[in-house]
Amino acid sequence: MPEQPAQPRTTIVGEGRAGLPISRVAVFAGLTLFGVTAAVPFVWQILMSLATLTDVDLLTQTGFPPTLLPSNYGLVFERVPFAKYFFNSFFVAGWVTILQVITCAMAAYAFSRVQWPGREKVFLLYLGTLMIPGVVLMVPNFAVVLGLGMFNSYWGLIIPGAFSAFGTFMLRQFMLTIPTSLDEAAAIDGAGHWRIFTEVVLPLARPGVIVLAIFCFLGNYNSFFWPLILVKDVNLRTLPLGLLVFDSSYGRETPLIMAASLMAMVPPVVIFLLLNRYLVKGIQLGAVKG
């Protein structure tokens, strides 16, 4: 066999001696260490949620609940209208998301695809308010909602969230990356603005829309301050409120609290796992563009 020329060895110079197993193992060990740190509280939460009321206080000594009580989860629904809380959270976050995505996408279309006198000035106004911190808006929004008679109602929970300067800004940035020649081609093909919006721009802005929808849904699902000041009626409580009230009335029943909070955590995780790839991109996009 003729002598083979030595294969050029590809080494990644940027990252230390790539081939060295020690550094590989060290990195993996580091990742594992932090991974375990991130996971342990959740594992513990699961164990606590399955324990009996007596076992849960001894869990640190037993390391595992001797008897498993899945019925804790059902009990949560008997003690408080947990299903109602769930429904409220989904209902409110869902509607806010739908409305916000629609209004923001339409506004973004007006800011990015239509040329009209005064466009830049109005957009500047939107941009200006992005810097105003949320706390400034809390009190006046409360007053506005009070004035509109939306206090203690779904309306009050949903309507103020149905518009967002940030969402408009984000989608506009996204739409600006779509070539205008597509709109022009569609116009020549015979499409009006509404068609161009729904059939060309919106489908192409889908990644941006999904990111906005995820952030919007998760944000409203977790939202605490606004429902706290707005809701007086038990039947209007969203999950965070419900959990807090549950904790203050059944705080000693740790397994139930843990079961309830664990259930509340499931939807975000599901959403995240399903749409992970959009979310990661979106966060990174937000920073680059925003």
Binding site: P179, S181, E184, A185, I188, D189, A191, E199, R206
Partner: peptide
């Protein structure tokens, strides 16, 4: 009229068939 653009301006989310048919459908 019909126009062909420098960057082609094909609708990226539609198949070739749909791209051709879009104007006729409208």
């Amino acid at each position: 009229i019909a126009m062909v653009f420098q960057n082609y301006a094909l609708y990226p989310h539609m198949t070739v068939f749909k791209n051709l048919a879009f104007g006729l459908m409208l």
